[in-house]
Computed example of a mutant assay.
Amino acid sequence: MNKALRNPVTFFLFILPGFILMTMFFIYPIISAVYYSFTSWNGVSDHVKFIGLNNYTKALGDERFWISVTNNGLFIAFSIIIQVPMIVFFSLLIANVRSLKGLYKTAVFLPSIMSTAVIGILWGFIYEPNIGLLNSILKLFGVDTIYWLADEKYAMLSILITNAWQWTGFYIVMVLAAIISIPRELEEAAAIDGASGIQRAMRITLPLIRPIISVVIMLSIAGAMKAADIVIVMTKGGPAGSTDVMATYMIKYAITNFKYGYGNTVAVLIFVFTLVLTALYQWLIARRSERIKY
């Protein structure tokens, strides 16, 4: 048996199935997307016309494309500036609960396992201008009707809040796992020395969970760059394309308008932007988060 495991052919046979699947569902689609991004093709006909960098020039010169890029940036900014601090805050609260901790973890995690279509429809009712819960509450304070999903001033914010509500619980469970893994002796020793709960959280818990917070931020960046389903369900990119993200912009051209070559160009740009952002984050910030050893 040991002799067989030392045989290079054995290792090759073990990795072959995974390599075939990776080639079929990852490597080949990327190569195919790059190839078709240099063409003019409707995705149906046999005629594929090579047009060089024309698609890239068109995309980078299209104002609507840059609106979609900006909206992806808003997803990232909202996640890092608002969502991540909320995740850490609620994780610390739940970690210090002495009873019904399992109930709280289940409650915050529940939206993450729900379909995005269900989430979008549910919040669509909440944002409904005439009978929606949000406007009904605001009317009690004399606020006029707000068209949350039909007004360019509020539509993107409404989507960001909905998306954060769906995924905050998933990240809370991740951070909670890191907090729970911290040896209790550290906090007990700090408590004996007279440190308050806030001091223990700021000087012990937060530094020790910094690596998992870094992971949460990186996952948030990647998730923000591929956001599409929540936008499609809630606004379809409207009003007037103000809530389009790069993925929905790509779908409109590749599928709705049968501009498959141009759609692949946008897909390649999404891949490149995501790769650059995650690489920059890893280089500038994430690598400074040292692996914690207790």
Rank of each mutant, 00 (worst) to 15 (best):
E63D: 02
T168I: 14
I285W: 14
I94N: 03
K101T: 06
Y249P: 06
I209E: 08
Y147F: 03
A107P: 06
R287T: 02
A59L: 09
L149M: 02
Q199L: 03
Q83I: 14
Y253R: 13
G169P: 12
A254L: 12
L74P: 10
I212S: 05
R287M: 02
M86I: 08
Y127K: 08
M24Y: 11
N55W: 11
D151Q: 11
T168C: 02
E188K: 01
R203F: 15
V84Q: 11
D193N: 06
T256P: 02
S37E: 15
V268W: 10
I251M: 13
A33G: 07
G263M: 07
G238R: 01
S214I: 13
A279P: 05
Q199E: 14
N264H: 14
S40N: 15
V69T: 13
V245A: 09
I67G: 14
R291S: 12
T235S: 08
D244C: 04
I232M: 06
D244V: 01
I213A: 05
A189S: 12
S115F: 02
E63F: 15
Y28K: 09
A267K: 01
A240C: 03
G261N: 11
L284C: 04
F65M: 02
E188M: 07
K101G: 11
S112G: 08
V108L: 01
E152K: 15
V69R: 07
L275I: 12
P85H: 04
Y104S: 01
L60A: 12
I15A: 00
P17V: 03
F50Y: 15
L93I: 15
P207R: 12
L93E: 00
F89A: 07
A177V: 14
R184F: 08
A4M: 02
S32E: 13
S242T: 12
I161L: 11
L103C: 04
V84A: 11
V231A: 09
G223D: 08
S99Q: 09
R64L: 13
I159V: 06
V268Y: 14
M1H: 09
K3D: 01
I137A: 00
M218D: 06
I172C: 04
N130V: 10
I232Y: 12
V97W: 02
K101A: 07
Y127L: 01
I232W: 09
G132C: 00
M1L: 02
W66I: 11
V34E: 10
S115P: 00
L275N: 08
L277S: 05
V231W: 07
K139P: 00
A267N: 11
T23H: 05
K226T: 14
M234H: 04
S242Y: 04
I255T: 10
L176R: 05
A95M: 07
A247F: 05
F78H: 14
V216G: 06
I230L: 01
I255Y: 08
T70H: 13
L13P: 10
L186I: 10
L13T: 07
L208C: 14
Q282D: 02
T235F: 02
L277A: 06
G102M: 07
A195T: 10
A117T: 07
L13E: 06
V276C: 05
S289Q: 11
A267V: 04
T23A: 07
G194Y: 12
L277W: 10
G52Q: 15
A164I: 03
V44S: 15
T57V: 15
L219E: 03
F38C: 13
T205C: 01
R64T: 10
L100Y: 14
W167C: 09
